Amino acid sequence: MLAKIPKAARPETRRSAEAFASFYVDQINVAFRRPGGESLLALSSSDCEACRTYANTADDFRRRGQRQTADLLEVTSATAAKYNDDTRQVNVFFEQRSVEVVDGKGSLVSRTSKGKGAFIMDLRFSKGHWQTIQIKTFSG
């Protein structure tokens, strides 16, 4: 089942671009808690390499019977850095939590590391909805 885009993330406005970017990050969390990358692919363009990487990793979790036990990323802010006819770019800052990765029996496989990071997300509004077209990652 694909995620329902929140009402705040539907119109073609600056605030909606910010809401969509935050929603996309939440869908990364969902993809690793209930493994599968379908929603990420549905919310992104086919040429978004980072989007495919996140989706493929979530699919690999599913194939191995693994999942994360909680949300990995907590968005602390999302701000449209550029918003004009040519470019819609949102900076998303987040806290990365230390989260357990477990197998199908609930046994610990690994634990993610804690930290801070940011995504610079390029978005496009096409056919009545937002799409992620590129994600650049920064961590610190």
Rank of each mutant, 00 (worst) to 15 (best):
M1A: 14
L2Y: 08
A3Y: 01
K4Y: 12
K7D: 14
K7V: 04
R10K: 13
E12D: 14
R14L: 13
R15K: 15
R15G: 09
A17Q: 00
E18A: 04
E18R: 05
E18F: 06
F23D: 04
Y24W: 13
D26H: 02
I28R: 02
I28K: 10
V30T: 12
R34S: 07
R34H: 06
P35E: 03
G36W: 08
E38M: 11
S39L: 00
A42R: 10
S44A: 15
E49A: 13
E49H: 07
R52V: 08
N56F: 12
D60E: 14
G65K: 05
R67M: 10
R67C: 11
Q68R: 12
E74V: 10
V75L: 04
T76S: 09
A80K: 00
Y83H: 14
N84G: 11
N84T: 07
D85M: 09
D85K: 04
D86C: 05
D86K: 11
T87S: 08
N91K: 06
V92I: 12
F94Q: 01
E95W: 01
R97Q: 14
L108E: 12
L108D: 12
L108F: 05
S110Y: 07
R111F: 06
R111L: 01
K114G: 04
G115A: 02
G115S: 04
A118Q: 13
F119Y: 14
F119A: 09
F119P: 00
F125G: 10
K127H: 11
G128C: 05
T132C: 14
T132V: 14
Q134V: 01
K136D: 13
T137Y: 04
T137W: 00
S139L: 10
